[in-house]
């Protein structure tokens, strides 16, 4: 089954263009994706190459800064710009994988729970309540401790922690949509349960899911950073943005650039994704379109 025909993509783009914020976000994401793909070509240094003679060098536009360390260096003399460019890979990877896992599994479970109420609903929702009952970071920490530290395991753990939000959101929407007349009308003309769930009900529940997914993207990056900081996520010397932030924490008072640039990178990426998510939600909703 094709999710969108070419025609639908074109219309979506037509309406996406209307949103300025969405375009800005998309451009910045384009830059980040460019870094992700061509990191080897554009980064001036190897991200883990240390230079003992250039420790904590400030950015090039300050008095003490000098070429070729454009954004300065960190505490062990690694080029900050190179690390940021390579870090884009990890952060985007974490964001995409975690959010995709949580969205796909969460939507599916929520759809099943909402559509087939009864014991399946009870089972799924009580399981989600169990996950929600733990403080999210603590649960992720525990899971990683069981699975073994590492970026991939941290990602699975974060996806699991995020799952209940998607399940509940989807279920609530499905519950309110499934008894609407248009669903019954589809049923009368013979739509199967699967068609009703995925073709009739799900598209009408997508708007809040898209927004939640974009918001979760930032959370995923931050949670991964937190796990990295606790030694359970990305292991040094991986130049993951959150981990860079955590490593630089002790130098925050004498070297502002080591925390500012990774923080800025996270902020801008997250902001762009949110803007794109907003614009996408509007573009995908026929009701928001001008007739």
């Amino acid at each position: 089954m094709k999710l969108f025909a070419d025609e639908a993509w074109r219309t979506t783009w037509l309406y996406f263009k209307e949103s300025k914020g969405g375009l800005w976000g998309l451009s910045f994401l384009g830059i980040v994706l460019f870094c992700v793909v061509f990191a080897d070509l554009i980064a001036p240094f190897d991200p883990s190459l240390q230079n003992r003679s250039a420790l904590l060098l400030p950015p090039i536009w300050t008095e003490a800064g000098h070429w070729p360390y454009i954004l300065g260096t960190d505490a062990v003399g690694r080029d900050l710009l190179s690390r940021l460019i390579y870090g884009a890979r990890y952060s985007m990877f974490i964001g995409f994988v975690v959010v995709s896992l949580a969205v796909i599994i969460g939507t599916l479970l929520g759809l099943l729970a909402g559509y087939y109420s009864g014991w399946l609903d009870t089972l799924i929702m009580r399981l989600m309540d169990v996950i929600l009952a733990f403080p999210s970071l603590l649960l992720a920490l525990g899971l990683v401790a069981v699975l073994g530290p590492g970026l991939l395991n941290a990602m699975y753990a974060i996806a699991l922690v995020m799952l209940p939000h998607f399940v509940r959101l989807t279920r609530a929407n499905v519950l309110s949509e499934k008894n609407r007349d248009y669903v019954i009308a589809s049923r009368i003309v013979g739509a199967s349960n699967r068609r009703l769930m995925f073709n009739t009900i799900l598209p009408n529940c997508m708007a809040p899911l898209i927004v939640q997914a974009t918001l979760s993207f930032s959370n995923a990056i931050l949670d991964a950073a937190a796990l990295g900081f606790l030694g359970m996520g990305a292991q040094p010397p991986l130049p993951e943005w959150g981990a860079m932030l955590a490593e630089a924490r002790e130098f925050i008072s004498r070297a502002w650039w080591v925390v500012t640039f990774p923080g800025l990178a996270i902020l801008l990426t997250v902001l762009s994704i949110n803007l794109v998510g907003d614009a996408l939600r509007d573009a995908l909703d026929p009701r928001m379109r001008r007739s």
């Binding site: 007349d181 248009y182 009308a185 589809s186 009368i188 003309v189 009739t200 009408n204 026929p286």
Partner: peptide, 15 residues
């Protein structure tokens, strides 16, 4: 046997 509903604002799929 087919059916027409009361509220035409709820019986058509907005998507």
């Amino acid at each position: 046997i087919q059916m027409v509903f009361q509220n035409p604002y709820g019986s058509l799929n907005p998507r």
